[in-house]
């Protein structure tokens, strides 16, 4: 693999992967909070619709959703999305569904007494959510969001399939043009690993900050991939009992 190929494909590909990860993460975060809080609503119809969203996107395969947005969506609605945005949208909707479960679970873990205290102080439901419940639940959400962010990073490689020139796409181009696959795919694995490592590092800082915000000490170690947030999905806890 020559420097030229590296400069022309790998570096821009890395940049596209970073962009896709950041954009879809931000969008997924919004989806997580909106759907997650709607799922705690007192109105059954709101709970039902947001729950249905969760079940559908949790059950759907991310790659199929990406394809659907790239090929079926334009035909159905007559609106062609730029491939990068079709990918980002598909990833955000899929991973946002997993994220909504994190938000819902953490909100449910806030002690009932806190909610009652909010009611006693005559806060509106929206104020309670924003000023009392979310700030307390947030530190609990950070470690699972870290795992989810890494799953999302790995998921961005799928958009190469709809011809977005990300890292995975660059790898395939180089394999085809040089007929050598070992160096380029090894490099790709290492690059993705380093990106995942940086995310974990960054989230560690966020976690420390969040825990300090509620006067807690950060945990010594939070292992990645533990439990339920992965595309594994599942409202259930890893390990159980």
């Amino acid at each position: 693999m020559s420097w030229g190929l590296f400069e022309n494909w790998i570096l821009p590909g890395l940049w596209v992967t970073v962009q896709a990860t950041v954009f879809s993460a931000l969008l997924a975060l919004v989806v997580s909070f909106v759907v997650g809080t709607l799922r705690t609503s007192r109105l059954w119809i709101v709970r039902f619709l947001s729950g249905a969203y969760f079940e559908i996107f949790r059950g759907a395969s991310a790659l199929v959703v990406i394809f659907w947005f790239a090929y079926a969506f334009p035909l159905l609605f007559g609106w062609q999305l730029v491939p990068l945005w079709a990918g980002v949208l598909a990833l955000a909707l899929t991973y946002g569904a997993y994220g909504s479960e994190i938000v819902r679970g953490s909100l449910a873990a806030v002690p009932e007494a806190q909610r009652e205290a909010g009611i006693a102080l005559s806060f509106t439901p929206m104020q309670r959510l924003r000023r009392i419940e979310i700030p307390q639940a947030w530190p609990e959400m950070v470690p699972p969001f870290n795992n989810l962010a890494i799953e999302l990073l790995k998921g961005t490689s799928l958009i190469s399939v709809i011809a977005v020139a990300d890292l995975a796409f660059a790898g395939n181009v180089i394999r085809l043009s040089t007929n050598e696959s070992a160096p380029v795919y090894t490099l790709l694995l290492v690059l993705y690993f380093l990106l995942a490592f940086s995310i974990t590092r960054g989230m560690r800082v966020v976690e420390r900050h969040a825990k300090r915000g509620v006067g807690k000490l950060p945990e010594k170690k939070s292992r990645s991939g533990q439990g339920d947030v992965a595309p594994a999905g599942g409202s259930t806890n890893g390990g159980g009992a």
Binding site: K154, L158, N172, S181, L189, F193, F197
Partner: peptide, 22 residues
């Protein structure tokens, strides 16, 4: 296991399909 878990399945599939036969 940390390495495998923190890298995309897609690239691992390419690795198995294109690199291993080398």
């Amino acid at each position: 296991t940390e390495f495998i878990r923190n890298t995309p399945l897609l690239i691992q599939l390419f690795f198995l399909f294109y690199v291993v036969p080398e």
